[in-house]
Write a protein that binds this DNA or RNA. Structure first.
Lengths: 288, 288
DNA sequence: GTGTAGTTTGAATCCTACG
DNA sequence: GCGTAGGATTCAAACTACA
């Protein structure tokens, strides 16, 4: 698969399977309206960490303290949120859907802005973590979930993609619910460099796979405006969707390109049904 | 237990175990600052309060079928939310905590307003429904959760009540997480009249019991500004807390009073430890 | 190779009393 | 208000070391 990298300027270019290293608010205005079939966004959460946190055994928690998560106040965060959401709305096709993930630090603000912009919420999906970080001090409940908002551009949109039957298959033949159980991204899947996390908030691939499979079709073009190390692109490639990844951090972009180059190519072995596909490099396929 | 009913006016009265039949925005301003130890609120999800709509400036609109564009509708809801939350904050004791429950229709707006008022979120707790209503048309995921926000008045509050060890006991000796599993309110527990639900969104008693037991102490005074048929008061009585219920609907108030009169009286059998209590009418108590 | 015990760590708005 | 010292505090899964 050919992946095209852009820096800053993309006007007039094809964005099929592209990785763009630039600020989201610089790039999105260059993109033609109604370009994407689906959008997944994992924006900064605006965590307001103040003091260092130690575990009971006195080791220090490696908390999220990245520059990209710093905002001066709620007003600044809201303004940023409104800016990128408005641009995202513009580049969504009329029947496209939007996913945004967040925690209580930011999701209420994101949801409010999104509703004000006219987006129509279809579901709030809860990612229930199998293995969340405990609350060391015992002063709150274990923070065990993150929230996803799934929305269309406005209330009138009825022809969005929802692969109801496939979701049903994934849930033992019963209608898929809005509470999803996945472990945190760890082990082989987690990108590390010198034993340290490449990205502090890498999402589990399984989560993105479910999102891609639920709300897009093969061949669709998927946008991720905060791509990080490219989990969304990974899931898109794996399931025969095209992607456009925007990420401002050069280091993350390099890792994303390396990662996507390593993703096994999956090729269709059956056409027409749109469902049955096998990994061409996977010897476990019963057809082989 | 003696329960006092008020209509409209409560100024100067004791609110211990009271049921007030009046609009929340009329009553709260009459109440002294820093009165309550804990607040649970299940606000309306839209502005159709007893056939009365609020304009963004909080004046009432009499006709239910007035044309409202989406923005003015949201603005009105936000204004109403800010009004009652600001009053609730005023009547909360300095170390009190607030619980608000909602769905994606309103919880983002409530959370945003609450943060803007200076409330400091402790957790977002997800009520995962064991038996949610399916999505009949198969166009979305089954809406299987509701969201609770737990907050203190401001960031500096550290001495709020959190019965950590008791919660741990309820979770097999492990720290209680923020995802709570309860079935919908049905069967014996559900109040019905001529085979129909008395209240369309009666909450499960078990949910309110966990909230009361987690975040209040015996003898505490608990406020519910949208009391409905009084599940919060029921849970409070059962666990030796006092209550103040505000409900504008006369029909709900009558049901609440009848219901609370039927709740078995629970009496302390041990004093001093503050934990061991038995139902005085419950023959299963090992002490008896 | 297997099994077991010990170690590490994850989007976190994580304490209290006293001077 | 702030700084500092004292002291109580964690769950699940993946990984490492070693028998």
């Amino acid at each position: 698969m050919k992946i095209t990298r852009f820096d800053k300027s993309v006007a007039g270019e094809s964005l099929l399977n592209s990785v763009i290293c630039a600020d989201v608010l610089e790039v999105l205005p260059q993109i033609e309206a109604e370009t994407f079939d689906m959008v997944f966004a994992d924006p900064p959460y605006n965590l307001q960490l103040k003091n260092e946190l130690y575990r009971p055994n006195l080791t220090k928690v490696d908390a999220v303290n990245d520059a990209w998560d710093q905002f001066s106040d709620f007003a600044a965060y809201d303004a940023f949120t409104e800016a990128w959401l408005a641009e995202v709305k513009r580049v969504m096709k009329p029947s496209a859907t939007l996913w945004v993930i967040g925690t209580y630090h930011n999701i209420f603000r994101v949801g409010k802005v999104l509703q004000d912009l006219g987006f129509w919420v279809l579901n709030d999906v809860v990612w229930v973590k199998a293995n969340p970080m405990p609350n060391f001090r015992g002063v709150r409940f274990t923070n065990a979930t993150e929230t996803l908002i799934w929305a269309v551009k406005d209330k009138s949109v009825k022809d969005y993609t929802f692969n109801y039957e496939l979701m049903k298959e994934f849930n033992d033949g019963k209608q898929m619910r809005s509470d999803w159980y996945f472990p945190l991204c760890r082990g082989e899947e987690r990108l590390t460099e010198d034993g340290k996390k490449v990205h502090s908030t890498q999402k589990p691939l399984a989560l993105l796979e479910r999102i891609v499979l639920a709300s897009s079709k093969e061949g669709d073009l998927i946008l991720d405006p905060f791509a990080g190390t490219g989990t969304t692109a990974h899931a898109a490639m794996k399931h025969h969707r095209s992607f456009c990844m925007i990420e401002v951090d050069e280091h993350y972009v390099q890792w994303m390109l390396r990662r996507l180059g390593d993703v096994p190519l999956t090729l269709p072995v059956a056409t027409g049904d749109g469902v049955k596909r096998e990994d061409a490099r996977d010897g476990s396929s019963p057809q082989e």
